[in-house]
């Protein structure tokens, strides 16, 4: 298994003020508003948000599946979108994407062996039949689909959801990518299998030095997958509302949206019968048409008049960037359930 050769400080890929606007006949929707990001080896970047937050669009921009409307994507200093098609495809192979639904991502009439072997043959030319088989077995062991010999001739429907997703992940690493975009890899998998998928992603980072863009709506899984130096971006309606070290945001979120997300994140010590929290959750089901103010204002328990009329500034607090008018006042503030 060859290893990524980049050193720790080298930026593999960067996004500079990237926006994506989808246009329909009647209106245009800004799915991603001016977002910047730097991806380095051996790093997990967590993206947290609800549906419609733009987290998948961000993942697709990183994986070169979506061309930005404005802003620049650079892969090792070059703009892939300006490169000739052949070179573009070569770069694209270095950034692999794992989809949410492991039930849809595998061909139901191909065995486990065929699924992996066809990709191995495509990328590692000139291997003998035995070498291909060895490589497939090695991949299955990495995915903890054991004993590998037993599963070689099984079809996807014989595998549990967790196994399928791990199979999808090891299939994605065959081209030896430097970046792996994992888009909600655990959301469709049983509770008891989730940890096994996150463990695999963690070992890819530590063993192969891969950068992993981990997209999720489950904040608790961010804590599980992250090391102290890994980053977290909290997204809401196409905007990064809070950005910083995952460990710091999880310990003390500043943006009101991050605070709410953390207060409802899965926890065995959570008190689900909290009357006041329930009120906030109901508040959050209101929906109002936005003016030019903060995208979160209509759901925000801390909103003041200014939030509805003026776009919020990016406030820098230590290592953290928070998109909020009241960011500096809200440090250490709890969700006002009082």
């Amino acid at each position: 298994m060859s290893h990524a050769t980049s050193t720790r400080d080298e930026v593999i890929e960067s996004l500079n003020e990237v926006s994506v606007v989808f246009k329909t006949r009647r209106r245009s929707v800004e799915a991603l508003g001016k977002t910047s990001l730097e991806l380095r080896p051996r790093q997990i970047i967590n993206i947290v948000g609800e549906s419609g937050s733009g987290k998948t669009t961000l993942g697709r921009v990183v994986a070169l599946l979506q061309k930005p409307t404005s802003g620049k994507v650079l892969y090792k200093g070059v703009d892939p979108w300006m490169e000739p098609p052949k070179r573009f495809m070569e770069i694209k192979k270095k950034i692999q994407y794992v989809y949410q639904d492991p039930y849809a991502a595998l061909n139901p009439v191909k065995t486990v062996y065929e699924t992996l072997a066809s990709v191995v043959k495509m990328y590692e030319k000139g291997l003998s039949r035995n070498q291909v088989k060895e490589r497939v077995i090695e991949l299955l062991e990495l995915a903890n689909i054991t004993p590998p010999e037993y599963f070689l001739n099984k079809y996807p429907h014989h595998l549990s959801g967790g196994m399928r997703q791990r199979l999808c992940i090891v299939r994605a690493i065959i081209p030896n990518p430097e970046v792996l975009v994992a888009d909600e890899p655990i959301s469709m998998v049983d509770v008891s299998m989730k940890a096994s998928i996150l463990n695999l992603l963690r070992s890819l980072r530590s063993q192969m030095g891969m950068n992993i863009l981990y997209i999720t709506h489950e904040l608790s899984s961010v804590k599980y997958i992250s090391d102290p130096q890994d980053k977290l971006l909290v997204m809401y309606k196409g905007h990064v509302v809070e950005e910083g070290l995952a460990s710091e945001i999880l310990a003390k979120p500043i943006h009101p949206y991050s605070k709410i997300l953390l207060s409802i994140a899965p926890s065995l010590s959570r008190r689900g019968d909290d009357e006041k929290l329930r009120k906030i959750l109901l508040l959050s089901t209101r929906s109002r048409i936005q003016g030019k103010g903060c995208v979160f204002a209509d759901r925000c328990p801390f909103a003041i008049e200014k939030c509805f009329t003026e776009p919020p500034p990016i406030v820098q607090i230590n290592h953290r960037r928070v998109l909020c008018h009241r960011a500096s006042e809200l440090v250490g503030e709890d969700v006002p359930v009082g």
Binding site: M193, A195, E218
Partner: peptide, 22 residues
């Protein structure tokens, strides 16, 4: 099942997948 839950009040070491298959 409870050990396999990924929650914010558990450390990574405390989360354990259930071995084997349903």
């Amino acid at each position: 099942l409870i050990d396999s839950l990924i929650t914010t009040d558990k450390s990574s070491e405390e989360v354990k997948s259930i071995p084997g298959n349903p």
